[in-house]
């Protein structure tokens, strides 16, 4: 179970390959993954870049905790979260969640749990740079 915070651009496919390379071959029949990527638009506005602030110690603890919860709830061989912070540009991956299991149902369900829990409660805050200046996403109606 691995949760990583990255201050620079990461390649989700390399992250997946790195975990896969460490797994015993033939034991997992399924890997489900989700990659969230920065858009260049939000609620009708152009978005040029984004700054992603976080509460480092709490975020790490939170991500580790949801990995543990997923491993208790589903029959997983491994799971992974990678999340960016800092300055992000459109097209950059923001988040990767992945789960490996013997069968697809557990992998899909755990992968979805990780991204939904993270999105709902992990302490990250986005500040977008739009045509009209900077704005916090949590202050933006319809975010």
């Amino acid at each position: 179970m691995t949760a990583l915070l990255r201050g620079g651009v990461f390649d989700p496919w390399q992250e997946l390959a790195r975990i896969e390379a460490g797994l015993v071959k033939g034991k997992h029949g399924a890997c489900a993954s989700f990659v969230g990527t920065m858009r260049d638009f939000n609620v009708g506005d152009n978005v040029h870049s984004m700054s992603l602030e976080h509460y480092p110690e709490m975020t790490q603890q939170f991500l580790d905790n949801i990995c543990t919860q997923a491993a208790r709830r589903w029959n997983l061989i491994d799971c992974l979260i990678v999340h960016r912070y800092g300055e992000i540009n459109p097209g950059d991956p923001i988040v990767l969640t992945a789960a490996w299991s013997a069968h697809r149902a557990d992998a899909f369900d755990a992968c979805r749990f990780l991204i939904e829990e993270l999105k709902a409660r992990a302490p990250f805050w986005k500040k977008e740079l739009t045509d009209s200046g900077e704005r916090w996403v949590h202050d933006t109606p319809g975010k």
Binding site: T37, R39, H83, P123, F124, W125, H138
Partner: peptide, 12 residues
């Protein structure tokens, strides 16, 4: 003790 606004991690 930490205070913060609603969180907005992940993506859409």
């Amino acid at each position: 003790i930490a205070f913060f606004p609603p969180v907005t991690g992940g993506n859409a």
